[in-house]
Design a protein around this nucleic acid. Structure first.
Lengths: 195, 195
DNA sequence: GTCTATACAAAGATAGAC
DNA sequence: GTCTATCTTTGTATAGAC
């Protein structure tokens, strides 16, 4: 792997673990096994390197989510697959956590990939909900964008609950709670007791 | 206000705005209008002062939430009141945001008030859901703790979505989405179109 | 209790040798 | 392209005067 690649990958890891303000160039260089000169040769500085790292993480996250959301199954099943997908819950979301970083929020450039990724996710989920409504799987009076926002928020907030308690339990509980509501909110009668 | 009070209040503000790793003693002292000596006279250091600040913020958050949750109305109405309560959405949750702070999560002492507050909130909401089930307002097969986790997660995640996009819109959408599901999931027929 | 002075490591970046 | 100085400011804390 090239030095520039190692710098980006090390930055991605550190941004995930410690956020932007908590990540120093020095820590990045140590992890990448590179000297100061390399970093300032390939990148203009910390914000420039962080931007490259965030963009790559955003791309990856979209690809992962798309893999589940474009998969087989009914709309409900695809949303369930997204919610139940294997996650390293206690690590949190590498994109969502950046929204708590004051320097990221203060910079339109750094915030853009974060915003675009979460926005894309909401739109994708909203389309699936609407698809489910056409097929009679979801009640017609639900609003696709609102349900989508609730789904993404449950995941992002689930990370908060899990990290607060030091256990993934609350994340899983929130997901199950939302799924039980989604299933119950079907227009036709379904098995009364969601699994 | 005493110097010690001003130090705690300044720390509370900065922790909310910039988190623990993003807040320096120097910034606290400047905001409090105090010198170095004062801070190290009243507190052992940054973690000790932060602990006092976090505890106070946690207490305040509990009191605010209790004010709404113990208020009048049916269980559904009280949950709705909690979700729709006026918030400075773009500032985020002063307690929840700390879960993204590596130094807070690494310290059991700093994490404890965060954990206890969110845990208390979930338990309180779970009890209200169960109360609603007894009254026939919520479907009996829902799990109170799961619904409570979904409610708190929607709020915490709503902050993430709002901050990512720089607008409270997505927070409100998530709340409306969750409320529409909660209302639809009532066991008896209700007005088909939730407001 | 509060202040200033001092200390020393780390953050973030530049300069210039190789 | 990479490395090692060097530089300035900030982070965090202690010491001691008032």
């Amino acid at each position: 792997m090239s030095t520039s690649e190692r710098l980006i990958e090390s930055t991605r890891e550190l941004l995930w673990e410690r956020g932007y303000v908590g990540t120093s160039p020095k820590a990045i260089l140590e992890r990448a096994g590179a000297g100061q000169g390399s970093m300032y040769h390939h990148f203009k500085g910390k914000p420039d390197l962080a931007l490259a790292a965030i963009r790559r993480t955003a791309e990856e996250m979209r690809a992962t989510a798309a893999g589940v959301l474009d998969g087989p199954g009914t709309p409900y099943e695809r949303i369930e697959a997204y919610l139940r997908r294997e996650r390293d819950v206690l690590r949190g979301c590498p994109i969502g956590r950046l929204t708590m970083d004051p320097d990221v929020i203060a910079s339109d450039e750094l915030r853009a990939p974060v915003d675009e990724t979460l926005d894309w996710l909401r739109e994708r989920l909203a389309a699936i909900v609407e698809e489910g409504q056409e097929q009679g799987e979801f009640a017609p009076w639900l609003d696709g964008e609102e349900i989508a926002a609730a789904v993404v928020a449950t995941v992002q907030g689930g990370y908060v609950l899990a990290r607060a308690s030091g256990s993934p339990t609350a994340f899983d509980a929130g997901v199950r709670g939302l799924l039980s509501l989604l299933m119950t909110a079907a227009p036709k009668d379904r098995p009364a007791r969601p699994s």
